[in-house]
Design a binder for these strands. Structure first.
Lengths: 336, 336
DNA sequence: TTGTAGGCGTTATCAT
DNA sequence: ATGATAACGCCTACAA
């Protein structure tokens, strides 16, 4: 059951392992006749290269590590798909880990990936990651990290992000233009700077249109539909002056709001307008279909992988931050 | 920038690499004092083990390969999540690849995973994979493969599958019990044996209830919503005797049918009842909410990983086939 | 063009 | 309990 190695081929052919190795990797310094012979023999003997050995020796694994909060929902599953597409195209494989929104798991995953000597890491930080320490320690070990979607502001590395300010400004403005005057923001986790950025855009839009920001209308909630539903019901019930518009940090939150509204027998957009962020797969299907800011999640994944692989290949030290601007998709959860 | 190795630690401590290696791996044959010393020094020197070297030497990578048709939709993204959960719990990492329903990509991925010396592979075959050759060749190289959801019938390995016959029999029967007499089956790809199995269940239910099978009502379609929509419109338009019930191979197909029905201004379930398979995330949200056969996709992923890892650990040669029976979830796309 | 030999960072098998 | 030393399978100067 022992696998065939280049040594076996060399022996069988009475040549050196170097010649075999070179032939197999299309090295120029090999006689074409020799190469043909080696390749044929390799096929004959059912040879399969050992990538671990090759990686160890060449000091590159051709593997990209990925750490995301979750892999089976909305933005993340699409982004991963984009990552897969691009990495494969460039001859890399991918090792995927979930942090489950836990900084502890995130750190563990990062450590294992780094110890596996992946050539680079794509990371979207978890909701409770506040310290840059781990990331910086891995960067200092010479392993490139690209931060995407969930990033640290002050850190020296490549980044791919959404233009959150712009997006939420557009979303909020759309609500205002369609007649809303009292707009709530369901914001997700305060700790994440994406949430903060979108909060800033929301506030700016409110102010720019001469409305007032009411802190009572800014609600921190989770990324679980059912929890959001509960949060919404509580919020709406206890709020005296009802909002006539709600902007949500993410579509999954907006959908939670829809569920809550159904429970309270509220009609959207008659009783209030609703706008999400992300354009998840479900958003066009739910009733009412969801007005939202579309994020090109697949493309963001592709771009992230592309930039990281460029960095790996060229050893460039010039870092970029790529910003993707979301686009407004108008559906039936807002008026007009 | 060169990373610290056990050799460096050994030198710094004036002990042998063997001692360092043993200390690091909690080998019993080490003096506790020595171990403490080594561990401390390792931390001091910022040592991080090289997993590639370790894998090469120990001949186990602690990595599980996964090959699925797609990673960002319905059953698959949930199954992967379950796989991730279980593998991590057992100290393994995961390398994920998509076949994109292409046998060619599937083979390439399998080859790379095998060459990466993963300890085992979880595979759901693509829609156009007909030959078992590649799988068998990898099995013969001593790398365990577990087939899940999309399997070959006649092959010696562990399997985790849905009880497709049972599920589609139940689904079809439910339509009949709720009054349908002329039931269509939107079946997905004929080439897949899951599709065939569900077809068998559908046919059996029809016959058992004294109805007749009409081949005109068995429609092959794709797994893309928009394509299904088109297929449905064409089908419904050209069919003289309209069906009063439609059973779909998967929820994504059922949703395509919903879109098609909207286009034709048909009402569900008034004009026809609709039942899906899988209970995708969207299915409870769409209008009408979808009656469907729920598959425990996450658990199936977990179970698959669990069985495979057991096989790896115990080198057991006794293969099992685990069957998961789907459960009927009644919502608003069927009557009563 | 080909071969030799050392190295990649561990683990494992002997001794001691 | 510890140490030499040979694998693990491949790559790569350097020599020939």
């Amino acid at each position: 059951m022992k696998a065939i190695t280049i040594k076996d081929i060399a022996k069988a052919l009475n040549v050196s392992v170097a010649t075999v190795s070179r032939s197999l990797r299309n090295h120029p310094d090999v006689n074409e006749v020799t190469r043909k012979m080696v390749l044929e023999k390799a096929k004959d003997m059912d040879y399969h290269p050992n990538l671990m050995a090759s990686s160890l020796s060449s000091r590159k694994s051709k593997i990209i590590g990925v750490v995301v909060p979750t892999i089976n929902r909305g933005f993340w599953s699409n982004a991963i798909s984009g990552i897969e597409e691009e990495t494969n195209k460039r001859g890399y494989k991918v090792m995927i880990c979930q942090s489950c929104e836990s900084s502890y798991h995130e750190n563990e995953n990062l450590e294992i990936l780094a110890n596996s000597r992946v050539d680079g890491i794509l990371l979207a930080i978890s909701k409770n990651t506040i310290s840059k320490e781990k990331v910086e320690s891995i960067l200092s070990r010479g392993i490139p990290i690209l931060l995407f979607e969930r990033i640290f502001e002050n850190i020296e590395c490549n980044k791919v992000r959404t233009d959150d300010f712009n997006g939420s400004y557009t979303a909020t403005s759309h609500l205002i233009k369609s007649g809303c005057r009292r707009i709530a923001y369901f914001m997700g986790y305060k700790s994440l700077n994406v949430c903060e950025e979108r909060l800033r855009g929301y506030i700016a839009a409110i102010k720019d249109h001469g409305l007032v920001v009411d802190k009572e209308l800014i609600v921190e909630t989770s990324f679980e539909r059912e929890e959001v539903k509960i949060d919404f019901v509580r919020f709406y019930t206890k709020t005296i002056e009802k909002p006539d518009g709600i902007f949500c940090f993410a579509d999954v939150i907006a959908i939670g709001v829809v569920l809550g509204a159904r429970k309270l027998n509220l009609r959207i957009p008659e009783d209030f307008s609703l706008i999400g962020f992300g354009d998840d797969d479900v958003s066009s299907l739910i009733t009412p279909s969801l007005t939202t800011m579309r994020q090109p999640s697949f493309e963001m994944g592709e771009k992230s992988a592309s930039i990281l692989i460029n960095e790996i290949a060229e050893k460039s030290t010039h870092f970029v931050t790529e910003k993707f601007t979301p686009t407004l998709i108008i559906r039936n959860s807002t008026k007009n």
